[in-house]
Amino acid sequence: MNANSLFYELLEEQVKKLDDSIDQSIPFHKFSLSYRLKKRALLKAYLKTLNNSDNFDRSYRKLRFYQRIRIALLAAITALLLTGASIYVTYLIGGMKAKMYSDHSDVFSLDDENAPEFIEDNYRITYNLEGYEHIIVDNDEILYWEMYENETDRISFSFSPKSLYKNARLNTEFSGIEKITINGTEMLYFETENGYQCLVWDHGDYIFEFEFTVPFQMAEKIIESIQKE
């Protein structure tokens, strides 16, 4: 055996010893979802363009379904932010729907298809309000509005056809919206920061509004006194 052959024999022996010392089992590795999805897309594109390798790049880079969903969600959120969309809570009170935002509410009457377009009945407060100045603010075919005032208090009563009570902007920022029942009728109640209390309710063909600074118990009695003439 010449020197070269002996060298290679010894080298081979050392390599074999080294090889034997290495653990031959493949360690467990969990590939990420992203990696697995990319690998799947790669294989799919490869198989699809096996006979037309020029289209491989375009096939592989096409947006997958989950990517389109992600883009659509991002675009929708961006659009909402850009258009200033706001979050609101919906209340259904009597025959009305109220969308309560952080600083106000928009109120709509519902089910007004069969309600009159114009005022056909006269409703008036019959409670004795002697000592209050009586003011007729408006009285025509689409709104009746009267007020009773003295030095300290105001009572305001108005009604209009249901079809005209849409998108009424009410200041519910201070108290939010409460649903209360007076005389068996569900009413929307709110109060402004300076203590002006307001009630709105569906009275069949009309939407009634009642605003007051008098004590609530007195307001209830006044409301109960509202009669059709």
Binding site: D103, H104, E117, F118, E141, I142, L143, S160, P161, L164, Y165, N167, A168, R169, L170, N171, E173, F174, T192, E193, N194, Y196, C198, E209, E211
Partner: peptide
């Protein structure tokens, strides 16, 4: 913004 005014309503009636 809003200065506490209780209600503002815009009504349109067509006849």
């Amino acid at each position: 913004d809003d200065i506490n005014s209780a209600s503002k309503i815009s009504r349109l009636s067509i006849s």
